[in-house]
Design a protein around this nucleic acid. Structure first.
Lengths: 141, 141
DNA sequence: TCAACTGTAACTGTTAATATTACAGTAACC
DNA sequence: GGTTACTGTAATATTAACAGTTACAGTTGA
């Protein structure tokens, strides 16, 4: 899985946890352990998809604009990492003579298409709100 | 998904398709479109796990030693690519003060652990024999 | 006007992945 | 018994992907 998915999820959980639901890229970056510029890039995507609002200028930052219990990891996966488990390397070649070699790409593609759906349906069952609950549960123990 | 998984699946389907169930690394490599040395490395793993037998020397090569309908992609995934969708990049840090930042790794880990299981159960439903059938179906159309 | 932000693009360094080379070991065949 | 055709494996390029960083223009509040 790519790290932008992780950064997005972590950022949203953090925003959901903050009482005022707001934080700057610098504050988020320190919590995630990465560079503020990366956070800005990732949260820029989330803004374009309507998950957060941003305010530029002094005192600005990012704010959650969807109920954490309405936002699933599947939404974030589709936005930030769609196709992440499908390999970018292909075996075989449609132009070759052999039946196996020439059709493998198509069959492999359908296999991974199904795998993506399977993964999405799993992520569909996990919300940002639940992630926060799990974190609270960790804290107690 | 890593390419070794692809190479393994492709090689096994090819072996299952061949009338004598046998091929050399060079022949497989040409079909997969990679280098014979990579094929030998991957099929070495498969041999250690009992999926193929090898014969060195002249006239040697690789031979399938399990019924294609008994071998699932889950078996191959576990052998060649276990943990492939779990990110190697981690956000947060257990030592930090913030509840979110300090527990995110553990929670994220459990999420991807579940995702792995989900993926494996999907792959469990696809056998090498089925892959070959799908390829034959492609050919006809 | 200054200070604190976001939005982006460009660049760098590092790691991971793939391709390639090389050679020792092994078995069949004449 | 020598030659040829293979596997096994390690070492070494070469390339692509990824995370980190810098830089600066644009925006907003005080």
């Amino acid at each position: 899985m790519n790290s932008e998915f992780i950064i997005a999820v972590h950022s949203l959980v953090l925003l959901a946890h903050k009482p005022d639901g707001m934080a700057s890229s610098e504050e988020i970056a320190a919590n995630v352990c990465t560079h503020p510029a990366r956070v800005r890039k990732v949260l820029g995507f989330l803004r374009k998809n309507g998950y957060v609002t941003t305010r530029e200028g002094s005192g600005g930052g990012y704010r959650l604009c969807i109920d954490p219990s309405d936002m699933t990891l599947a939404d974030i996966y589709r936005t930030m990492a769609a196709g992440a488990i499908t390999p970018n390397w292909c075996s075989g070649n449609p132009d070759m003579d052999c039946m196996v070699g020439s059709n493998m790409q198509e069959v492999m593609n359908s296999v991974f298409c199904g795998a993506e759906k399977q993964l999405e349906s799993y992520f569909q069952g996990i919300t940002i709100g639940q992630m926060l609950s799990r974190i609270k549960a960790c804290q107690k123990t």
